[in-house]
Design a protein around this nucleic acid. Structure first.
Lengths: 147, 147
DNA sequence: GCTGAAAAGTCCTATAT
DNA sequence: ATATAGGACTTTTCAGC
């Protein structure tokens, strides 16, 4: 599927605001609403647009500490860990990576005590390295053109 | 601001689908549309709902390799690096972390050659550790209740 | 704080170019 | 492949509970 200049603009605007009215998109790109709707539909069908989601402030919900945790899984525990990690409410992402510490997780906790508790639950599966997020210089950049 | 059971349900559904009609939300939680709209508005005003965004498939757009890169910034380069990194199109996240490798970035590239090129551009600011994402066990979990 | 109905606005479908 | 226009649907507003 070809992504022309107009589709990049549509993608860019939808990334910034998933709830923007078709009308506004249409005006921005200089096409009619039905045409824009059709382009969006095609990008959804092609899997280029995956989903529309809402970002909530975990900070405001009572979980002000963001953490990245890597784990070097104990021999033979990979399967068990992958099932287990899906049930841990604090963890929002878990990626299998190349390299020695083969799993990277992102999570949120209420306070240091809560982090200690989370670490204890994870540590049974392997060796942890935990880092607090001090500051996010970039979070969720918008891709608005090819590079 | 108090987040009751109903607001958690609203937050959960909006996280899953930012474009769900008010009507459907209202039906799900057993309230009228205006009430749900008002609750959403209040959560937006309180900063609990931060933004609505669209997830696009970088894979489908021609960037199939996801990477995490950590960097140990060279002495005195922190300011310069933070300005620079915002201009690098491949990087979608950059977090300042506790610990030795003080910055963690996430990015996408076309192929190994492209990754080598990205690494070369970043390496002037410090010592890199690059890991490819082999598989994402969890990506962007929905928070649908307190824990 | 919630409802229900009316007004305003948006989206969809059919038709036309 | 895009535009226009009418009808259908959704959201917003507002009076009343």
């Amino acid at each position: 599927m070809k992504i022309d200049e107009i589709n990049w603009t549509i993608l860019s605007m939808l990334q910034k605001n998933a709830r923007i009215p078709l009308k506004d998109l249409a005006k921005e790109v200089g096409l009619s609403s039905p045409t824009v709707a059709e382009r969006i539909q095609k990008m959804e069908d092609a899997g280029i647009i995956e989903s529309y989601h809402t970002k909530v402030s975990l900070d405001k919900l009572g979980y002000p500490l963001g953490v990245y945790i890597t784990i070097k899984i104990r021999f033979g525990q990979t399967e068990r860990f992958q099932e287990f990690i899906k049930t841990v409410p604090e963890i929002s992402e878990c990626h299998k990576l190349t390299g020695r510490d083969c799993m990277l997780m992102r999570g949120v906790v209420k306070d240091p005590k809560h982090l200690e508790d989370l670490n204890a639950r994870l540590a049974v599966y392997g060796e942890l390295t935990t880092s607090l997020i001090l500051n996010s210089i970039i979070s969720d950049k918008i891709y608005d053109k090819p590079f």
